[in-house]
Design a binder for these strands. Structure first.
Lengths: 338, 338
DNA sequence: ATGAGGCGTGTGACCGTGCACATGCCCGCA
DNA sequence: TGCGGGCATGTGCACGGTCACACGCCTCAT
């Protein structure tokens, strides 16, 4: 019965075609900017589209083209500053390139959750995959499923350079460590992130490398979990012995907890203990004292990430060198007391 | 030519059907847990599915059902702790309900960006929409487009209660303010968030309400921007006069900046100035001194959010009362010096 | 015995888009 | 004059699911 009115569903190209007096294919051509269309025809179609508020159906298009114009992000811990910043940066860069982003937050300690998240993104037809989850497990699952989607991992594993992109965590950690050594510290502890975070491991490696390169005796790193709470308790624990003059923390939050514990013990920073963090979260400049830390350029990371993903089609020779982070010296570090 | 091998495309229900010796419809029934299927037939189909690693094509399903099983989140400032936590909580709750989440980060100061983000989510066929962006603008666009998708805003506007869900920011702000008043403070400043954030406005209103309810003379609030940097500069500015004994900051980051400025001026917290924040970010307990603040239950918020969105179908009588936040008293507040 | 009805399954259409191919027209060149 | 070729447009099918309906078979009440 109903000939022109929409019957509950949104208008399709066929509705537009009928109203404009052309074939559905012509409408499709207008949508895809096909060159061979008479300007007046094109205009007529565009007018009708505007009139009926036509919106292309993404599902239908994805169905036939198998393309979604979407990049998937597999992420865990997305409330953390690092991952959150990366996501935002990637989103911005993707938008720039005309792509959209779909995020799946996973519990990286749960294989099932990883597989589900991955399946979700793949089922959505993402054309690229960014993994911001730490676990090697994720890569296993990825390989196992013989994913045919280009992917990038935002971690510095060192291995598998084709799929890895990152701030050079090792270099950053060496920067931080060298800074402490140059100030004269010899008894330096390192507080790591969770052992299954590849980033955490890289920072630890950087620490150890720089220590031995400078012939400073190394102490065993303390395994942390990124949280300020942990930093606090670790600090209390360490202070029962107090055989150090500086601590390099794997992120700023733990550094904050450490400083809390140190002050609680009646000590002063940096007079009694020097502290270096990692990340340079926006708050770090306002810690007490303002934190010396290592800054990562997340925006640049996001940009390169998208370029790498999308460029693999175009074969663009994207610079794949790791981004070198930068040491930001503030007031939480100084020469040891003696 | 090729009869069984996959021809580049992923296997479809028809491939599975052929291999299992049934019709494609039977496969579909297995997928949808149709009751009338002989167990052995079902098993055979499931076996084939596992064998060929069958994955239902989401686009195809969405095309015919017009359902995506996806909830859209329109968000700005998603690196902020509040929004990020909300997103994570919503995602968790949605997954619980068998839904997925698609996020669109927008620049809330740009109408075009808002419209684009909205269009993106709608085009994706989201079945519900959560808006975590502050601007009234977003709602205008929403109304203007006569969106037929149920939506919820995570802001306490007070108006339009059907589409609003939030922590009761006003109550939280009153809690914080009353705490200061009860300690004996009379000269209290308030540092707000950006004026176009509805949450910021609500907290300001709570502050003003409590002040006048307690007959304390009110000072004009200071317009902030959520950042610790701003808190620092605002603090420096305020200290040139120093006509106050307490400050209630609209979030924890600005409180951190304030404390930085106060210490820089050689003053002590809370002896000389008391500080209250808002959010209870995980780091707040380790600020110096540990911050008295207002805690919001984001997980609960996310849960209710999803329930409200999905429940509107089922007609479930979901509690729509605002979630009442909780005051966490730590060491940044105390009685005024005299 | 017969018809109603449920169960397990198959057939064909349809969702909205893009692609391959066909069509008619006009232009230019041999 | 005939024909190749580009332009503007149309026709029909494919994509991978779901839905409405049909079909045999068996059971059970009439």
């Amino acid at each position: 019965m109903s000939d022109e009115p929409s019957k509950g569903r949104a208008p399709s190209i066929r509705d537009v075609a009928r109203l404009a007096g052309v074939s559905h294919q012509t409408v499709s051509r207008v949508l895809n900017h096909h060159p061979s269309i008479r300007p007046e025809t094109k205009q007529r179609v565009l007018d009708v589209m505007a009139e009926v508020q036509y919106q292309p159906n993404r599902a239908a298009r994805a169905l036939v083209t198998s393309r979604s114009h979407t990049i998937g992000i597999l992420s865990s811990q997305s409330t953390q500053y690092g991952p959150a910043s990366s996501i935002t940066a990637i989103e911005a860069a993707a938008r720039e390139a005309g792509y959209w982003v779909s995020t799946a937050n996973i519990d990286a300690s749960d294989d099932r959750s990883i597989a589900d998240g991955l399946a979700h993104l793949v089922a959505q037809g993402v054309e690229g995959l960014v993994v911001i989850a730490p676990q090697a497990r994720v890569f296993d699952t990825l390989a196992q499923r013989s994913i045919d989607v280009p992917y990038v991992s935002l971690q510095s594993t060192g291995q598998d350079p084709d799929h890895t992109l990152s701030v050079d965590q090792i270099a950053g950690a060496r920067l931080a460590t060298r800074h402490l050594i140059e100030l004269g510290h010899r008894n330096i502890y390192h507080l790591t992130g969770p052992q299954d975070w590849i980033e955490a491991e890289a920072r630890m490696r950087g620490f150890l490398e720089e220590m031995s390169a400078s012939d400073v005796p190394t102490t065993a790193p303390i395994l942390g979990d990124w949280t300020a709470d942990f930093g606090y308790y670790a600090g209390r624990e360490l202070l029962t012995v107090r055989d150090f003059t500086a601590i390099f923390s794997s992120n700023d939050q733990m550094a904050l907890g450490l400083m809390h514990a140190i002050r609680d013990a009646g000590l002063e920073i940096p007079r009694d203990v020097s502290i270096v963090g990692f990340d340079d979260i926006p708050e770090a400049a306002h810690f007490w004292p303002p934190l010396t830390t290592v800054r990562q350029d997340f925006a640049e990371l996001g940009r390169r990430c998208v370029a790498l993903l999308l460029g693999s089609d175009a074969g663009a020779p994207e610079p794949r060198d790791a981004i070198v982070p930068e040491l930001v010296v503030r007031s939480s570090t100084g020469r040891p007391a003696f």
